[in-house]
Nucleic acid binder design. Structure first.
Lengths: 341, 341
DNA sequence: ATGAAAGCGCTAACAA
DNA sequence: TTGTTAGCGCTTTCAT
């Protein structure tokens, strides 16, 4: 019965005994030692190993070698922005193609990054990554930093560890250029105040205008919220700004939103005002939080955060396949064209 | 320098040597063997261990004992419904209080559950859980099932493994009762066709009416989408249904939505029709996908999926602290009262 | 080209 | 009460 063969745990020892060879020979046949070995012996060994469904005990191997086939992932604030977990999924997926699994641990309000890193280290992972749920600068304790091989969606201010982040400036440039290509010329920007993504996107916004030789209308780059930080709780300025913008003459032909949640609010206000999207005013945004963006009416044109690509690239680096070449590697957003622009 | 002491890896051996005792004594002092040991010896050992920052090598221990302090989490379809990752976060958090970390692996379209379980098993976790991103029945291969200690957000049709799921029937009953308490009597239900949560919620919907002796209006339990399954892509029936409902006389005083995304669409249509929420018609829903529910205007009253509680309870069971007592354990939703009802 | 033996760091029998 | 020994399953010198 084949099932039973797979069930019973089979060790190098079993294979060695059945074949009348030593344990070391079997070990060598299955991994390294490729050159110096009778091809025939190796064939026999491999065949039997397959038949018995041999799986090396990675814990034993880990102890011997001091490394487990793991990526330690220390993630900050999984609570707040769950959709960034696409990074985790992608890292898991890509990691597997290099034979690595993921041990994940959450840190945040109640738990320091240092504690998370220490926990990860105890499993002797091949590499440790620190990830945040939105793009930001962090300053990690030196002690922790020494064990971190890569930061994802953030960079340490010391720049002593390679980082992978989304390319916010590119994203803003590209969406603005797309507006221009669509014949839009008067773009208002309801940006996210107080966060890194916001200021970088604003930079790209201005750059694109400059390149095209189009002036940014005064007073049309506005904060979507009152608080310094963009949180669920900060009071929204969207209704006030949109109402004011719609009263102006000429009024904007496009509202660029700091993210899809801002866009969700913008839709609400425009709806109430009877302004048609995109006939009267186009709307575009950042993130591609698909739950929102696809379901809005009309569906929202937005720059998709490259979370999946970031995870893939991170796995490459962590597996040591294709090391980081720059301190901060910026991954481009992708334009998702829907009906709102 | 204290930092250096923590850096250099310290072994039982080091402590034993410095104190002139045997390795076994140190091991015993730090864990089991509590009774039969000179309290003084133990104090000395503990003190030195602390000072040196001793951390047992869990890989070595794992090899010896055949178990690693891990929960293997095999999760299906993290892609589709990222907000269910609250389960993972909560499991991670609660697991840690029992000294367990989480190795997570995603399965789905490209990868069988069996493969995921096999991967998890190789790390010799204390227990393995299988989780899905929405509530459903699954039929896992017998081979995999044997290694699974708990299913989360799903149950195997064989009922041979304990399961933790959200209590959909309770949720529907409770929200309907809340409508009644608010004086609402004519509730239309735009439900999710073809999924388990939908049929269970429908059951609760009817039960609550029956208990209160209020008749369900004929033709007011309607599918939100055309497709048998609720996916992003199935064509929505929301606009048609809402328009039709609003034309009736008497018309509903409440729209209960299959989930928050349906509610998002309902808001759009009601807005367009100039129907005020909740003055003209109240809206309520299920899930509490906070990105949506908090941000809608007015904020949405909804039954929150108990993902966090599910993760906590799962950790208890997996850690063996408080074993499962029933085949299927149903965790109650929580009413989140906002302004839409 | 293969085998024998040591040892990764820890815990569990068995002795003392 | 403490020490000694063996061994978890594997890889890696060192012999053969």
């Amino acid at each position: 019965m084949r099932g039973a063969a797979v069930k019973k745990k089979v060790h190098l020892r079993d294979i060695a005994d059945k074949l009348g060879v030593s344990v070391k020979t079997v070990s060598g046949a299955l991994h390294g030692d490729s050159i110096r070995m009778a091809e025939k012996t190796r064939q026999r060994i491999r065949a039997l190993a397959d038949e018995l469904g041999y799986q090396p005990n990675i814990v034993a191997r880990g102890m011997r070698q001091g490394v487990m086939p793991l990526i330690g992932l220390v993630a900050e604030g999984l609570i707040t922005l769950p959709f960034a977990t696409e990074i985790v999924r992608s890292l898991d997926n890509a990691g597997r193609s290099y034979g690595l699994s993921v041990v994940a641990t959450n840190v945040g309000a109640t738990r320091s990054a240092e504690a998370g890193v220490a926990e990860a280290r105890r499993f002797m992972p091949k590499a440790i990554a620190f990830a945040t749920m939105f793009h930001k600068a962090v300053t990690l304790p030196a002690e922790a930093l020494r064990s971190i091989n890569l930061t994802i969606n953030c960079f340490d201010t010391s720049l002593s560890v390679p980082a992978i982040v989304p390319d916010e400036v590119q994203a803003a440039r590209e969406i603005v250029e797309f507006c221009f290509a669509r014949g839009r010329r008067r773009i208002a920007f309801l940006n996210l105040p107080g966060i890194l993504a916001g200021s970088l996107r604003e930079q790209g916004f201005h750059e694109a205008h400059k390149v095209k030789g189009i002036a940014v209308s005064g007073g049309w780059v506005l904060p979507a919220t009152r608080g310094a930080h963009y949180t669920e709780f900060s009071s929204s300025l969207v209704p006030a700004h949109i109402e004011s913008l719609m009263r102006q003459n000429p009024r904007p032909d496009t509202i660029l939103c700091g993210n899809d949640r801002v866009a969700l609010e913008v839709y609400g206000v425009l709806n109430r005002l009877g302004v048609k999207i995109p006939a009267d005013v186009a709307v575009a945004s950042f993130d591609n939080q698909s739950e929102i963006a696809r379901r809005l009416d009309p569906p929202l044109t937005t720059m998709a955060l490259p979370h999946r690509a970031m995870g893939r690239r991170a796995a490459e680096i962590l597996a040591g396949i294709h090391p980081a070449t720059q301190q901060i590697e910026r991954i481009p957003f992708r334009l998702v064209e829907r009906a709102s622009l």
